[in-house]
Design a protein around this nucleic acid. Structure first.
Lengths: 143, 143
DNA sequence: TGTATATTGAAAATCATTATCAATAAGGAT
DNA sequence: ATCCTTATTGATAATGATTTTCAATATACA
């Protein structure tokens, strides 16, 4: 059975000798309960609603830990803000980004992934991860 | 016959009513003579070697114009700096980025592009451009 | 309970980029 | 050639996101 993201992070923290803190627990629960692609600031504002005491720096630090632990991934859509999305180990998806309304649609395509691996092989390159984003106008915007 | 990038930019500038300036000419020549994927700062430093008078802001402004004119494209590899690469109209390539030595290898794959268009079609999405980067360890580094 | 160490929050610092603005340069009109 | 309008420049200040600093506090374990 697959471990929950929460457990994955707690294991990571334990292995790294991190102490468990109230703030990290709160941020973890909040992060997991919210939708994908949140920017640090969005999460911070959300957190403040129920926990006014939490500092900006702590949110930044904690999100970086999430990324390091593998339960989240940093993404950038060119708007100058780093966003974080949930991530199961081994899971991967790519994005359609609407340049008009900002909507983000996720997709997966195993054929594309296979071709990527072939390209990498041809160059003797070992892929760790990848990023694929298609920018354009979404269905709702182009009518 | 295909227009040179230099001519493409000059046409763009003329159409936009921009005045031609010594600085822009210098920056254009320098940019075109240097390799791909230069950051603004790298180009700025290179320029200063032969033209100490050119200001930082001018380099930023001019590179933005290059991107607007279509002869260059902004790319970001997650290191916090915007880079610019040369671009012929209609030309497109993707990147293998070595996370160990920082090497950037370009590739093109028409099959992947076709699949991308299919994915977009399925979502009623009109692609304007795309970004595909494979991060990993290059051949030179993994031996 | 004591102690070593990780963590926190507030504020200052940093880094890349952008805006401001007075001085200058270009390109046409006269 | 000179005037005039407008774009451009460079220095500097401002911005916005992220990081660092550091003293105070909390945690884990002996």
């Amino acid at each position: 059975m697959k471990l929950s993201k929460k457990q994955v992070f707690l294991d990571f923290a334990a292995a790294k000798g991190l102490k468990s803190t109230r703030q990290r627990d709160i941020i973890l629960d909040c992060f997991l309960s919210l939708p994908q692609h949140l920017s640090t600031e969005e999460l911070y504002l959300k957190l403040r609603e129920s926990n006014p005491g939490i500092g900006y720096a702590t949110v930044y630090r904690t999100l970086k830990l999430f990324a390091e632990s593998g339960i989240a991934r940093e993404i950038q859509f060119g708007d100058g803000q780093t966003r974080y999305e949930h991530l199961h180990v081994g899971e991967h998806h790519d994005h359609l980004v609407c340049t008009r309304c900002g909507a983000i649609i996720e997709f997966e395509n195993e054929t594309i992934e296979k071709l990527q691996r072939e390209v990498a092989d041809q160059h003797g390159f070992i892929i760790q991860n990848h990023k694929l984003e298609l920018y354009g106008v979404c269905a709702a915007c182009n009518r």
